[in-house]
Design a protein around this nucleic acid. Structure first.
Lengths: 228, 228
DNA sequence: GCTGAGAGTTGAACATGTTCAAATCCACTC
DNA sequence: GAGTGGATTTGAACATGTTCAACTCTCAGC
């Protein structure tokens, strides 16, 4: 199950074709209904060849993650360059996630069980997804850093990670959302981003100091546990 | 894939034996390593017979899940009968979850992914798993109701559901926990139960009234979305 | 032009979840 | 005791993810 990197032009072509066919079929038929044989057939390549470049079917989905992440990052670049208000940056970023992923809504539902599986390379908390996870967390760091919000250092340290988790929560809700135009998800986004901003502004209340310290400590401890 | 209910004594025996062997093997070898053929072999029955009573391998997992829920409920019964302090009841209940599930830690990940899959009939938010979900939520309602804590009505209404979600979060953490004796999970439980109690006591602060109303509305709206 | 090494490709084979039509069992009726 | 109908059991067959040893292709070095 070694991951083979293409070393020749021919190899690159094959890898790209296999990945392209896989993403197309995933979108057309969903994850489970797309067989490795169907992918190979569409490319006009043998079954074994797919496994030369992608150790498992799940690894094809990892590439799909990266693809949507890049779409998302590109979509919000103008907003992040222009806007300084934290609430607006956050809301726009989260909204863009679900808008970007909208064409893959059905597909997202079909792979969810695999994604939630801790043993799967698709699990966002796992080692295989680490590079991508780091990229997404960095994106949220940029959302915070480029804003005019004044966030205390102890919170700022953990905030990008928390916002990443928040995004995952929204995506989870979105997967279940059957409302027309996915309106309910957009409502929840608006509601929750406001809530996040408000809770951040309340975090300085003396009465909440204790809870704040404990929550931050908890988050840090949990995050460290994941990387260990 | 019709669910066959045994109609004769012989059928009952078979069903029970198949389920028993499955639970044993799951515990011995984990979920994936346990094949349907191995289950049938251990019972001394043919492969097809298992499918007469359990439409899929996942349905065996659901039965397993129900089994652990019953163990859990039995384990905390004395505590709930004796103790009145809310924090103690909650902590004991959540601790008992991970203690009860400890023998199954190695393959709990696979179970969790099955349970979390929106497409699966076993999904806890879905209709098929509703009876089990209601039982667990009712258990947390009992944790709250039997305590001497004075919870405002609007919060009390949603609290059992939230505590159920909280339990799921703890279980998810526990699945990843590789620390000896699963000590990290126990720490997180102690920390978070305290936090829950503290946040509940803070919920009456005038400053937090607005957030409280919004959070409760959000939870209700999300919960309604699931059942719809 | 020949050769060899490494990249790329192949297709058969395997394990396992699942299906299904046929065979068998069993309690009941006459 | 023979017959009947439904419950139960069977085992072969199928689909699909994955593996692997053998084969082909390409091209640098001679």
């Amino acid at each position: 199950m070694a991951v083979a990197v293409p070393k020749t032009r021919r190899g690159e072509t094959s890898r790209a074709a296999i990945l392209g066919a896989a993403l197309d079929l995933f979108q057309e038929k969903g994850y489970e209904a797309t067989t490795m044989r169907a992918i190979a057939d569409r490319v006009g390549v043998s079954l074994g060849s797919s496994y030369h470049y992608f150790p498992t079917k799940e690894h094809l989905v990892l590439e799909f993650y990266r693809h949507t992440h890049e779409l998302h990052a590109a979509a919000i670049a103008p907003l992040l360059a222009r806007e300084r208000d934290f609430a607006t940056r956050l809301r726009g970023t989260i909204r863009a996630v679900v808008v970007t992923c909208e064409p893959f809504h059905d597909f997202a539902g079909s792979i969810f069980s695999t994604v939630a599986n801790p043993g799967s390379p698709l699990n966002p908390f796992g080692a295989a997804a680490r590079p991508l996870r780091d990229e997404v967390v960095a994106l949220y760091a940029e959302v915070v850093k480029g804003s005019d919000a004044r966030i205390p250092a102890d919170i700022a340290e953990m905030l990008p990670l928390v916002l990443w988790l928040y995004q995952m929560g929204i995506l989870y809700f979105w997967i279940f959302d059957r409302s027309p135009g996915r309106l309910r998800t957009l409502e929840v986004i608006d509601e929750t981003t406001d809530l996040v901003v408000r809770l951040l502004s309340l975090a300085n209340l003396p009465l909440l100091r204790g809870s704040r310290r404990r929550i931050l400590g908890l988050i840090k401890s949990v995050a460290e546990g994941q990387t260990a």
